[in-house]
Design a protein around this nucleic acid. Structure first.
Lengths: 179, 179
DNA sequence: TAATAACATGTCAATACTTACATGTTATTA
DNA sequence: TAATAACATGTAAGTATTGACATGTTATTA
């Protein structure tokens, strides 16, 4: 499917960037729905260069440190826009180790079952707080048509997802403790 | 991490099964949080056999068709229970192609942006209806401590997740159409 | 009874992803 | 100024996963 390809092209469609800067972006807001390691980014940029989807110029940082500033080409932009305009079928639900564990958890002592649920709730609550803090930094909702608006929509999606997860975990805990 | 290992051991901890039956289970309720292809199951069962985590007996179905009925061993059960009782750190958020697409969607015409959102909503609504149908087949909430109870909890989780996704998508559509 | 769907088990090649290895520069701060 | 963190770019080995290839049996239904 080469989705990483489109993740990178999408960024370079906004502005020229180095591999390192791309990596940093994937550690930030994007990490809520896509994660990549630098060991995957550099080879993919190399491949995209060979395919003519991107080009780069070598910039000197300081006195000797070379860095590659990548730009999207017209070919790359066309390929990206084609992907962006398409509707995509939902993929198989993502794997979640915790839900698998919960699925089998009847084999545990009831207190332990509640404990792992509470542990998970704690982790998701922490993430939710973090996301809400990010949201508050927006101040008001960005204008439609801007990239900030899209940033806001996906952040909202991450918040709604965490809220739902926290509420579900609380429901589970209540049901486990009932009378 | 070998999570597939625990997915398989967890099933065999409930009852003896063939590779084919395991595969069928991963196409059912489990598919909401774990998916596996048969091409991954058979080699993993082979490996677990070599490791002494499972054993099998060959059963004859009909007159000649051989099938392998797998059982968990004491070693396998101990390893599984160790995993089951542990608390696990949340993994990096699962990859979602649609959210990546939405993140870049400011480069699209506004009507197209709304169209892909509505398409996604349609797909998630369909899945939600399907999950609710499954829930209604439970009749009432199963008793705590049974495997049915765990089945119910993870189904509830899938429903809450889809509800949140649908609500978020509606929010996005409204925000795109505002005034 | 012939066709078809479901049962049943595997391998292989390719892709995707992670972890560790490997190296060196530049900016900050103690 | 010395240490440290951040910048910067790669490779290699191993694990995980998918999709295609490969084969044959049994049950159902038209």
């Amino acid at each position: 499917m080469r989705i990483l390809k489109y993740a990178l092209l999408g960024m370079l469609n906004k502005q020229d960037m180095t591999g390192y800067e791309l990596m940093k972006l994937f550690e930030g807001a994007l990490s809520e729905f896509w994660s990549v390691k630098h060991s995957q980014i550099y080879p993919e940029l190399k491949r995209l260069t060979e395919e003519g989807m991107v080009t780069y110029t070598v910039e000197i940082s300081g006195s000797v440190l070379e860095k590659k500033l990548y730009s999207i080409t017209e070919l790359g932009r066309q390929d990206f826009m084609k992907w962006l305009g398409q509707t995509h079928k939902m993929k198989a639900t993502p794997k979640e180790e915790f839900r698998l564990q919960l699925f089998y958890s009847s084999a545990l002592a009831p207190e332990r079952q509640v404990y792992i649920l509470e542990n998970q709730l704690k982790q998701h609550n922490a993430r939710l707080e973090h996301l809400k803090k990010n949201q508050s930094e927006f101040g008001e909702v960005p204008k439609r048509g801007t990239y900030e608006f899209s940033d806001y929509l996906v952040l909202l999606g991450a918040i709604r997802r965490e809220e739902a997860t926290c509420n579900w975990l609380k429901e589970c805990i209540d049901m486990c403790k009932e009378d």
